[in-house]
């Protein structure tokens, strides 16, 4: 055994092979392998919480002095827009009442009736620059499962849970290149929305390979369609802000601005399936 450790290149080869095997195993069984992360994620969670809290306060403190001038100007502009909005608001209230009546008439059930909402704080970001993944302070102890959808209080889509540890879980944002969401435009077209390296720097997602005959234009609102089984139907994704021709003339692609400001999130909600909970209680 001692000789084994003397031979450095042999150790290197063995370690390399083990790591490659681990990569394969962990990408296939991410649920169970995620438990390895607990060794580190459990002690680090409270420290991260504290640091994020402090960092945010420092940022807010600095911004306070930086922004005073801008805030004054903004204030004037806002006052004007408030007037406009108030008149719009009155109209919308009328529409809303009408909508409620119609909904009652149709006996529509709430979209998220099958889910519990679990609130969570964002405690940390991914250590690298490539992935749009962030950490929440709830985990398997709160009944969180992988692939649960994550939304904000305004019912805008944030992403989905990509891995769960005991006291924390990771969210794959819809900006990430690995994220795919099936969306539905208000005109009734199905879209495949994904993250893109170039557009995510500006905070946008894209939908590509849109056949030319599909009627899609700037300003179209996009919701989740419920295809793919991860996201329930009817969560707001965002708005089309640009439609471009792709390399060939047969397809176009659309740039979508998420309805959620994904850069400045603090609190999110996880949709936890009720049926799973009920099942575990019966046992």
């Amino acid at each position: 055994m001692f000789n084994f450790f003397e031979n450095k290149s042999l150790v290197l080869i063995v370690v390399t092979v083990i790591l490659i095997l681990l990569i394969g195993i962990s990408s296939a069984f991410s649920e169970t392998m995620g438990q390895i992360g607990n060794i580190l994620s459990v002690p680090i969670t409270p420290v991260q919480k504290f640091c994020t809290f402090t960092g945010k306060n420092i940022e807010a403190f600095v911004l306070f002095f930086k922004d005073t001038k801008a805030i004054k100007e903004e204030n004037e502009a806002l006052k004007e827009s408030i007037k406009k909005l108030q008149s719009e608001n009155r109209e919308l209230t009328k529409l809303k009442e009408k909508n409620m009546e119609l909904k009652k008439a149709l006996r529509l059930k709430g979209r998220f009736d099958a889910y519990d909402l679990v609130g969570a704080n964002i405690t940390a970001m991914d250590p690298g620059n490539w992935f749009n993944i962030f950490t929440l302070d709830v985990g398997s102890r709160d009944g969180i499962k992988a692939d649960s959808p994550v939304i904000t209080s305004s019912r805008g889509l944030v992403g989905r849970i990509c891995s769960v540890h005991f006291s924390q879980s990771k969210v794959l944002s819809i900006l990430d290149e690995d994220s795919v969401v099936w969306g539905w435009s208000e005109k009734g077209w199905s879209l495949r929305i994904r993250g893109d390296l170039e557009y995510k720097d500006r905070g946008f997602c894209i939908a590509d390979m849109i056949p030319i005959e599909m009627d899609i234009a700037e300003g179209d609102l996009i919701e989740t369609s419920g295809y793919g089984g991860i996201y329930p139907k009817g969560i707001s994704i965002g708005k089309v802000i640009e439609v471009k021709n792709q390399d060939s003339d047969l397809y176009r692609f659309a740039v979508i601005e998420p309805s959620v400001d994904l850069e400045n999130l603090e609190e999110v909600f996880i949709l936890r399936k009720k049926s799973i909970e009920a099942g575990s209680e019966e046992k």
């Binding site: 390399t16 790591l19 992360g37």
Partner: peptide
């Protein structure tokens, strides 16, 4: 390995690169 545990998707990826 520590980075793998925290980024939480695939274990061994950053370990191999770091090594």
């Amino acid at each position: 390995l520590a980075q793998d545990m925290l980024s939480g998707r695939i274990i061994g990826f950053y370990s191999l690169l770091g090594l």
